[in-house]
């Protein structure tokens, strides 16, 4: 069970979120130059050398992770034709609902995530309104909440599914 792709799904999402955060850092603080004269209209956006390298590496890693993810997804769907996972479904694929016991632990995990979201999002919004935070920090804050929700969900479900002897 612990190797079930649906159980590992939150970890994949966390990986994508971390790379997205790194990519956001790479794209932060670009220098924008706007030229608006009678003869020329142009916008030039330049990113620092280190930051652009960071963004490129993050993007490259993102696509590598995406390729591995797609491979694992196909493998899971091939091996589990009755429990196929779609990366584009509205319903989170990490829900384990094959019977009432699994539905119970999924509900417990989802309740914990909901509790986390109900205080973390308003708190983040309050910080963003009160403090003069740069855009990157707000993006990181949102990604941190997303990371937190997946971690809470994964930990809760994992705690119930620790392999024990029959």
């Amino acid at each position: 069970m612990k190797n079930d792709f649906r159980l590992q799904y939150p970890l994949w999402q966390m990986g994508f979120i971390i790379l997205l955060g790194a990519f956001a850092y790479g794209l932060s603080s670009p220098v924008t130059e706007v030229v608006n004269t009678e003869t020329e209209n142009s916008i030039m956006i330049s990113i620092g050398g280190t930051q652009s390298l960071f963004a490129m590496i993050a993007l490259l890693l993102y696509f590598i992770l995406l390729a591995v993810f797609a491979y694992q997804l196909r493998k899971h769907n091939k091996n589990n034709p009755h429990q196929k996972v779609s990366a584009f479904s509205i319903r989170p694929p990490e829900y384990l609902e094959q019977d009432e016991g699994m539905t119970y632990i999924t509900r417990k995990a989802a309740q914990k995530v909901y509790t986390f979201i109900t205080w973390s999002l308003p708190l983040l919004a309050a910080f963003a309104m009160i403090l003069p935070l740069p855009k990157l920090f707000i993006i990181w804050g949102i990604l941190l909440v997303a990371l937190g929700q997946y971690w809470i969900y994964y930990r809760e479900v994992r705690s119930h599914l620790k392999e024990d002897a029959e």
Binding site: D99, Y104, I105, H160
Partner: peptide, 25 residues
């Protein structure tokens, strides 16, 4: 647990939850 799970059409994990008292069927 797997044998019993198959007989009643649930996963082995659900039988384990019931035995441990984590879940009321």
């Amino acid at each position: 647990q797997s044998d019993l799970g198959k007989q009643v059409d649930v996963t082995r994990q659900t039988i384990a939850f019931i035995e441990k008292g984590e879940f009321s069927p």
